[in-house]
Nucleic acid binder design. Sequence first.
DNA 1: AATGAATGAGCATTCATTCAT
DNA 2: TATGAATGAATGCTCATTCAT
Lengths: 202, 202, 202, 202
Amino acid sequence: MVMPIQRRAFETKRRILVSAVSLFSRYGLNGVSVDKIAAAAQVNKQRIYAYYGSKTVLFEQCLVQIFEEVNSLEDNFHDITRDNLGEMTDILLSHYINIHRQVPAFWRLIAWANLESSSSLEKLSGIKNKSLSYLNDLYQEGCRRGILRSEVSFDTYIFNIFAVSFFYQANRVTLSNTLSRGLFEQEGLSKLIHETAGLFKK
Amino acid sequence: MVMPIQRRAFETKRRILVSAVSLFSRYGLNGVSVDKIAAAAQVNKQRIYAYYGSKTVLFEQCLVQIFEEVNSLEDNFHDITRDNLGEMTDILLSHYINIHRQVPAFWRLIAWANLESSSSLEKLSGIKNKSLSYLNDLYQEGCRRGILRSEVSFDTYIFNIFAVSFFYQANRVTLSNTLSRGLFEQEGLSKLIHETAGLFKK
Amino acid sequence: MVMPIQRRAFETKRRILVSAVSLFSRYGLNGVSVDKIAAAAQVNKQRIYAYYGSKTVLFEQCLVQIFEEVNSLEDNFHDITRDNLGEMTDILLSHYINIHRQVPAFWRLIAWANLESSSSLEKLSGIKNKSLSYLNDLYQEGCRRGILRSEVSFDTYIFNIFAVSFFYQANRVTLSNTLSRGLFEQEGLSKLIHETAGLFKK
Amino acid sequence: MVMPIQRRAFETKRRILVSAVSLFSRYGLNGVSVDKIAAAAQVNKQRIYAYYGSKTVLFEQCLVQIFEEVNSLEDNFHDITRDNLGEMTDILLSHYINIHRQVPAFWRLIAWANLESSSSLEKLSGIKNKSLSYLNDLYQEGCRRGILRSEVSFDTYIFNIFAVSFFYQANRVTLSNTLSRGLFEQEGLSKLIHETAGLFKK
DNA sequence: AATGAATGAGCATTCATTCAT
DNA sequence: TATGAATGAATGCTCATTCAT
């Protein structure tokens, strides 16, 4: 009693990707051997080359995969509505900081890619964050109503949010040695989020 | 006319460090072989082990080195005085973005360290940013005079500045594929700096 | 409008052989992968095993194939007749040198086979050169008439012709580095052919 | 009690070359793995790269080595003198056929090189056969005395001798299946040598 | 007849590190 | 202090061959 052939192949390919995301995010492109990915996926090494062509291509596919995964976690932005625009920034900051905490593969793969990729990663261009236009609409509404600062563009707004949440996770090791360590305890984080969110309120 | 033996050893050790900073920052701990560092420093490989013990220790020394280097570039904050507190944030943002552009080894080594270091990098603790207390004084003065927002702590202030400048450089590759590419042209950057600085003004 | 199934199989088998001859002659038994033959023949790899059993057997079939091909090119020896026996050797030398130039797969496969084959290549025994007896008759006639040297047997005669023409092509790379390079220009070749042919004339 | 370091290294390098000549001549560039050479030479694989750089370069060095070896076996041409010019060709033919029999690595490496080398093997240019000018002198003398055919140039003469002796060894496998098998028995060979030598006598 | 999936061994080359001088 | 020699384990990738459909 065997699996239908396409499904089996599909699962093999999937298993490779899952293992690769996990390993690449931890150790980076150069830190992981194809052998180890194959072992982790319980797959013959050759399958990796049959399905992905090269280690580098596999790495890029991992990036695409993690972006899609994280994108699909953002449906809950619909709890931000016209009625609680004042808390929008708090919600977004908390959301992204949480994402980076719960899906560390996200910031890690991004960081590895920025360091190790010589290529232009054009495959990512296709994965536009679908929430952005929705958030933009809300942001404009907030400005109109005088809740948010209309002299600050949405581009700057979202950039700051991304920057703060990414930086907070991605630079823990160095930051906790160079800035105050309190930042990484619950109280410090709350203060950071609250005060940063305040920056955008009128 | 030969160099005294201690001085010669010192220069050898130094040459190793300089080459290592350059190579590690570009290719990371795993991306660089000891052979290549030795070749770049025009030094026998064994010298590296004699002076630094292991590749990992050498990498950590590179981090310390780059932090010290960058710290020494910050003297010029003395052009921020009580008379131009309104432009303080613009100056700081521009300064750090410039540093990251001119000394890419800085953010790169930091990024590698955050990804690759399992250790706690305690050696960095010693290198407190000596400018911070000076900037803190200025910031408090700005708040008192009503130029800056007194409900925002200095911790949050400096964190945001570090985050924005680091993120801007370190995530170029992925950002230019996922956010607007205009960000990385002159006009986009000016807008980002100006609007971000505005956030901190009352 | 589909091909009858047997004919289709026949063509598949043929396509494999043609691609294999081309690749094996260029890169040898060890230099060619079954995958590449399959790709060149636009055939599933498994077909090769179905039709030929193994890579080695396929290689031997290529040898047989090229011998048959070259044999079929020799009909034109009928332009050697009793009336121009004096030019017989010139014609033969030119002919074989031309063959080796135009069908390099011939000498190459022969050379590979002599180097790589541990087996005795008995399959080749069946392919006797059908021109040989015809040429033998002409040679004897030439001897009788005093045009050729009757103290030289036909075996020696034909061996010399094969040797010179084969060696000329098959050792170009090393010869042009160890003997005179002029050999491989038009003039040098003409001289070689003319003088060698002269050896056999009385 | 250890060997002086340079001598030890020299022997290591030598051992690699000897093993490589033996293996490459038998199985060709593609048929031999660096691992096997290292094992045969009882040497760490890395040494091969330290001393020769790559498998290809090592192969080329093997060619150079075998040419030098064979060249050094030719001193005995001094048994050809002005007194036995009539037997010169017999002696040369026997000599080279013997060389190819006793040092099969010679013709085999040459054959592999002609098949596998994409490069131009310019390293061989340096190793001009030092006997050639000596033989040329004798040949001219033979012509003057009316023993040899003055209408045949030395170039053609030596080419024929090289061709026959090489072809006789290098094409055994295919020849014994396509021409008469008697060639490769003692009697057949004697006849071939005697009759071929006769071609060059007046 | 034909195909994609799968495998285990092998490949050329490089690595971090230690040894001997 | 400085160096070349040496090592054993990886590394990314390919191979000939077989299996399942």
